[in-house]
Amino acid sequence: MKNLIVSLLILVFSVPAFCQTDEAGIKQTVISFFDGMRKADTAMMRSAIAKDVVLQSVANKKDGTTALVTESMTDFMATVAKPHKDVYDERITFNDIRIDADLAMVWAPYKFYVGQTFSHCGVDVFQLMKTDRGWKIIYIVDTRRKDKCVE
Rank of each mutant, 00 (worst) to 15 (best):
K136S: 03
R38E: 13
S119V: 02
Y139H: 14
V125E: 05
S72T: 07
E90L: 03
N95R: 06
L128D: 11
I99C: 14
V141H: 00
M105I: 15
R38A: 13
A43E: 06
F76Q: 13
M77D: 11
K130N: 11
K61T: 06
I138V: 15
Q116Y: 01
Y110T: 06
V53E: 06
A43D: 10
W107G: 02
I99H: 08
D142P: 09
M73T: 09
A50M: 06
K85H: 13
V53Y: 04
E71S: 13
W135M: 13
A67H: 07
D86L: 05
W135H: 08
S119E: 13
G64W: 08
S72V: 12
D52F: 01
V87K: 13
Y113F: 12
L128G: 05
H84K: 06
F112E: 07
D124E: 11
D124K: 06
I49A: 02
K62E: 14
V58T: 07
E71L: 01
D96V: 05
L68H: 00
L128F: 03
K111A: 15
I140F: 12
V123W: 13
R133F: 02
I49P: 02
R133I: 05
Q116T: 15
H84D: 03
Y110D: 10
R98T: 14
K85Q: 15
I97R: 08
V54L: 09
A43M: 03
L55D: 03
D142S: 10
E71Q: 06
N95Q: 13
P109E: 09
W107D: 14
K39D: 14
Y110S: 10
D124S: 12
M105P: 08
R144T: 10
M77R: 02
Q127R: 03
K130A: 10
A59N: 09
M44R: 04
D41P: 05
D96L: 15
D142E: 15
T42M: 07
E90V: 01
H120W: 09
V69C: 08
A108G: 07
C121A: 10
V123R: 06
M77W: 03
I99Q: 01
G115E: 04
S47V: 03
V106K: 07
Q116C: 08
G122C: 06
R38Y: 05
H120M: 07
R46I: 00
